[in-house]
Design a protein around this nucleic acid. Structure first.
Length: 311
DNA sequence: AAGCCCACGCGACAAGACTA
DNA sequence: TAGTCTTGTCGCGTGGGCTT
């Protein structure tokens, strides 16, 4: 790890990184709970090794101390964040980007978004914190998050803080690597799919799924009814709440007249249902219609006879 | 605490398939 | 032909997760 505080050193490293294809980046923010949060550190990792958290990998991390160095931050944003040729990987990118150029950022990947897009059965984790993904997806143990909320505005930073700061991009890169694998698994080419294998798998799951699905809905409804009947609104993670909504409706003719007399512009499309179309008849030609054709593919699945069950 | 983003539940609809 | 079933969509509000 190199911990850089000097302008020249940081500039040199920025210019080095501006030549790479992909960077794994994390930040630490001071005074995050106030209205004036300050960017404290930018941690950057390039080209991590594939296997193991070895010294070589963690030593690659650069920690850029940018507290109160807005010119340097701007330079980082200009040369790295706005550069579309460099892929920048963050966990929860929208948070870090608030301090790094916001929406103007180019070529950004977010491991949080990636993780959320993968179906639960492929990534069965209780949440998508970086810590959890590092531990459960990459089997890294002893992920220490105790420094996360520490004071990043003080100097000098403690050894613990710097250690924490350098580990995050390492975890990030490992998580990112595994997520790319899962993403491939989750997005097979439809042309190359093994249809019969898929259908067998479907039949295998169908039976179990029906049992579980019906039971879970049944239990939900019973809990709902029981909580209502016993006047329990909250218990052990179950909360019963009700909400009201009012929908207002008016006769179309009345609405049309009213808006005309009041001169209110109501420019909204009205769906002409089959019934309305029929009532209009030929007169429909007088309207300038906006037609939308969509094709929906429907999968209908026949019940299997008992003897055909593949299990 | 702040800000962003998304999943979820829900009601209301639409419309094709099916059925008597 | 009318009614039912199934599937899908939409908007809206809520609630929760993620980062420091």
């Amino acid at each position: 790890m190199q911990y850089l505080t000097g302008f020249k050193d940081i500039q040199a490293v920025i210019s080095k990184y501006s030549q790479t294809k992909i960077l794994w980046i994390d930040t630490e923010i001071a005074d995050y709970q106030t209205s004036k949060p300050r960017l404290s550190l930018i941690q950057v990792l390039d080209k991590p090794t594939q296997m193991g958290i070895d010294a070589a990998e963690t030593e690659r991390v650069s920690i850029l101390d940018v507290l109160e160095k807005s010119e340097i931050i701007d330079e980082f944003i200009e040369k790295i964040i706005f550069n579309p040729d460099i892929e920048k990987v963050f966990h929860n990118a929208s948070y870090d980007l608030r301090f790094l150029g916001n929406r103007q950022a180019q070529n950004v990947s977010c491991t949080l978004e990636m993780a959320k897009s993968i179906p639960y059965y492929l990534l069965p984790v209780p949440n998508f914190k970086l810590e959890t993904l590092a531990e459960q997806l990459c089997h890294l143990s002893a992920v220490d998050k105790t420094q996360q909320g520490s004071d990043w505005g003080i100097r000098p930073l403690s050894r613990k803080q710097l250690h924490y700061a350098k580990m995050d991009p390492v975890y990030l890169a490992r998580v990112h690597h595994r997520l790319l694998q899962l993403k491939q698994l989750a997005n097979p080419d439809p042309v190359k799919e093994d249809l019969s294998a898929l259908m067998i798998r479907y039949r295998q799951l169908e039976h179990q799924w029906k049992q579980i699905d019906t039971e879970i809905n049944h239990i939900k409804n019973r809990i709902k009814a029981a909580m209502a009947a016993q006047e329990v609104s909250e218990t052990a993670g179950f909360k019963l709440s009700s909400s009201k909504r009012t929908t207002k409706k008016a006769a179309f003719e009345q609405l049309a007249k009213l808006t005309q007399t009041l001169g209110i512009e109501l420019d909204l499309p009205v769906t002409l249902t089959k019934a309305v179309q029929k009532q209009l008849g030929e007169a429909i030609e007088q309207l300038s219609l906006e037609e939308e054709v969509s094709t929906n593919w429907r999968l209908s699945i026949q019940e299997l006879e008992d003897e055909d069950l593949p299990f």
